[in-house]
Nucleic acid binder design. Structure first.
Length: 496
DNA sequence: CGTCTTTGACCAGCGC
DNA sequence: GCGCTGGTCAAAGACG
């Protein structure tokens, strides 16, 4: 009995598929199309009285069974289609909520900016609605009012009245990290210049600005400078700005001439830079920036400017608590946010996250506080090691453009990915998004040569970034709103 | 012809 | 005060 029933079952199954095959052949219809067509074709095949079928399937009971199977298949397919529709809707909703969350996230920073931007560049606060970017080297106060709440100020986001404007440039907007002791070596601090800054209990911006001015008066330092060391084959690295050479000197202790450039993007732009090759290693180009751009910047220039600006800010914050000649920690009592040369934004206040800014030195040279960002070696590998990987030391050419792009010019997909996934900024954007997020997708040559340390670094970076992001109450509430909305709107059929 | 680079001169700050 | 050094100016030349 059992054998007979299983035989019947097999036969009916065979018949079902045979019917479908016959229908396909006869009507030349592909199955992965609309199942209605298939059903129709199947029914047609059954009803056509195809001799090849009718020979085997002339039993009315079998026909009835086939009809049942077909209709049940149709029902199944309809159900699948319904679920597909629901999933499609869910996906759309998730994307929509994701964008909403992103907007909330951006709004959060934009709300914070007006408070901080005033201390950033008081001379650029006209609020004329132009795409003016305030980048301040050396004039930024390191003193932020102590906050009890979870709010943090990103000093490097561009201030703008209209917060809904998509064209808004955001500076230093990577991931915001609370920073552990930054390993900053105070090399050559003269006198007690950097220890004269006190920590004012400031509540009002007005008071703060006055105190800042007082402090600046007290400090005999000139404009802060930011040096960037990169391996570059050409005369100067392309940082997105237009420069005009106005002088050249042989500096003491270095046979390589130092070239002086000024920014020509605006006639009144006070920004200068000088470029010099490293005496020890001619392949290393040392570019030193000084001043604040007073004009709109291109995306790539903004990237570089924001980085140097952030570094200068870090310089100020570290100098407020550092002691000369000591390897010290970054300002643990201030809440200064800054970007690393790798595009990440760090917050130096709370020490819970294990991040530090590598290859960064602070020094004073002729009363110019100078921070040096050494991009000739990767954060976790020394140069000799990183050279084995072929990516640790960023090499620049004339066409190389630092890839810290802001979201405003998302014409390039890489730029956009870098913005949306700040972790991908690591290694100056030479690491693709996939490589950054998913270490297993590293290209073969790199994969073969790299150690697990780099993957661990990526994993740590991602983990810390995630932690930092998710620990932000505003981000969490936005995320919660999205999820709530998703669950509420999901209805019965959606499965998460 | 306009723009950019080169290069010597000049100036200011700093240390002795 | 003097010398050294870094930084800037400006005339001359190069270049497109």
């Amino acid at each position: 009995m059992e054998a007979a029933s299983s035989l019947n079952m097999e036969k009916s199954m065979f018949s079902f598929f045979e019917v479908k095959e016959a229908a396909k052949m006869k009507n030349n219809i592909h199955l992965h199309g609309d199942q209605t067509l298939v059903s129709k074709a199947s029914s047609q095949a059954v009803n056509d009285g195809d001799p090849s079928l009718s020979n085997e399937e002339d039993d009315p009971a079998e026909d009835y069974k086939q009809d049942g199977l077909i209709s049940s298949a149709k029902a199944d397919m309809g159900q699948v289609r319904q679920e597909n529709q629901k999933l499609k809707h869910t996906l759309t909703r998730v994307l929509k909520d994701y964008k909403l969350s992103q907007m909330h996230f951006n709004d959060f920073f934009q709300q914070e900016v007006p408070k901080s931007s005033e201390c950033l560049a008081p001379d650029h606060q006209e609020g004329d609605g132009t795409e003016l970017i305030s980048l301040s080297l050396g004039t930024l106060s390191s003193h932020k009012p102590k906050r009890d709440g979870p709010k943090k100020v990103n000093c490097f986001s561009k201030s703008k009245e209209d917060s809904d404007d998509d064209q808004e440039l955001k500076l230093g907007l990577g991931c915001e990290f609370d920073l552990t002791p930054t390993r900053v070596v105070i090399n050559d601090l003269k006198k007690d210049e950097t220890t004269q800054i006190m920590e004012p209990p400031v509540n009002s911006l007005k008071t703060q600005r006055i105190e800042d001015n007082d402090l600046l008066d007290q400090i005999p330092l000139k404009k802060a400078r930011v040096s960037v060391k990169v391996i570059c084959d050409t005369q100067t690295m392309n940082d997105g700005c237009q420069w005009r050479k106005y002088g050249q000197k042989i500096a003491k202790g270095n046979p390589c001439p130092r070239a002086y450039y000024r920014c020509t993007m605006s006639p009144s732009c006070p920004v200068r830079k000088h470029v010099q090759r490293c005496a020890e290693d001619r392949s290393v180009l040392i570019t030193t920036y000084e001043g604040t751009h007073n004009h709109p910047l291109s995306v790539s220039a903004t990237a570089m400017a924001s980085t140097t600006s952030a570094a200068a800010s870090m310089l100020k914050s570290t100098s407020s608590t550092s002691q000369p000649g000591l390897t010290t920690t970054a300002a643990s009592s201030t809440a200064t946010t800054f970007s690393s040369p790798h595009g990440m934004t760090y917050n130096s206040r709370a020490p819970q996250y294990p991040f530090y800014l590598p290859n960064t030195t602070i020094s004073t040279y002729q009363s110019h506080p100078t921070i040096t960002l050494d991009l000739t070696s990767s954060p976790h590998f020394n140069r000799s090691t990183s050279s084995n990987f072929g990516m640790g030391a960023p090499r620049f050419s004339s066409s190389t453009c630092l890839n810290f792009s802001s979201p405003s010019s998302s014409t390039s997909s890489s730029i956009e990915s870098n913005y949306k996934n700040p972790i991908a900024f690591s290694y100056l954007g030479r690491q693709t998004l996939n490589e950054a997020v998913n270490p297993t997708s590293l290209n073969d040559s790199y994969k073969n040569n790299s150690s697990s340390a780099l993957q661990q670094h990526s994993a740590e970076t991602i983990a810390a970034a995630t932690k930092a992001l998710t620990s932000n109450p505003s981000f969490r509430s936005a995320l919660a709103a999205s999820i709530t909305s998703l669950v509420r709107n999901a209805g019965g059929g959606a499965r998460i």
